[in-house]
Computed example of a mutant assay.
Amino acid sequence: MLTRVLAVVLAFGVVAPVAHAVEKGQVTNLPLPRFVSLKAAEGNVRRGPSLTHRIDWVFTRRDMPLEITAEHGHWRRVQDREGQGGWVHYSLLSGVRTVIVGEEMINLHQRPDAKSPVVAALEPDVVARLGKCEPDWCQLRSGGYKGWASKENLWGVARDELRD
């Protein structure tokens, strides 16, 4: 999660960092940025937050993870792992969390430990359902398999994100 740090001057001129609240969306009051997934098989990506804005392209992959970076009414500004994005109607998005495998194949392990047995291997660009996350590992489900993968080669989960 994104945390802003402010400096506070304490007595005797000592400066100490203080964690500031995460930025919140004006519409939902949820953290920004945050990850979601594409609920629909197709989603128009517009230049601005209304139907009158031009469609720049169409996302065509259901369950693809996206990052919300702004909110305006019923619209969310999103971007994919390549930084491409625009405005999408909120009805096309889901709070169900997914991740996408990066450029290298990853192993799913029985436990969050590189020495534990490998359950399956996921190829680049595979989309998997996100489960629990520890500091360096996340539990994933894909193709009928369930296991733990290192966060290193995943997009759709923050490096410091923990999930129960």
Results as ranks from 00 to 15, higher is better:
Q79G: 09
H72Q: 05
R4L: 15
N29C: 02
R77T: 04
R141E: 05
V22F: 03
G43F: 02
K24A: 11
R111Y: 05
N153M: 12
K24T: 13
A121I: 04
D113Q: 03
A158D: 14
R46T: 09
A11E: 15
D113W: 06
H20M: 02
W57R: 12
I100G: 02
R129T: 09
N107V: 00
T3N: 12
W148V: 04
A128F: 03
G48C: 06
G143A: 07
Q84I: 14
R77D: 01
Q26K: 09
P33S: 13
V14F: 11
R76Q: 09
V9R: 15
Q139R: 08
R4K: 15
K151C: 01
S91G: 08
L92Y: 08
P31W: 04
V157F: 03
A121D: 05
A70E: 15
A128K: 01
N107C: 01
G13M: 10
V15A: 09
G102R: 07
E123G: 02
D160L: 14
G13I: 10
V99H: 02
W155D: 12
P17S: 02
L154Y: 04
L66C: 02
Q110D: 08
W155M: 13
A40D: 15
S142N: 03
V5Q: 03
I55L: 10
W148R: 02
V9A: 15
R62Q: 13
D80K: 04
Q110F: 00
V119R: 11
E103L: 12
K146G: 00
I100H: 02
G144V: 00
V22G: 02
T60M: 06
Q84L: 15
A7Y: 14
T28G: 04
A158L: 11
E134A: 13
K24L: 14
L154N: 03
R54G: 13
L10Y: 14
G13T: 11
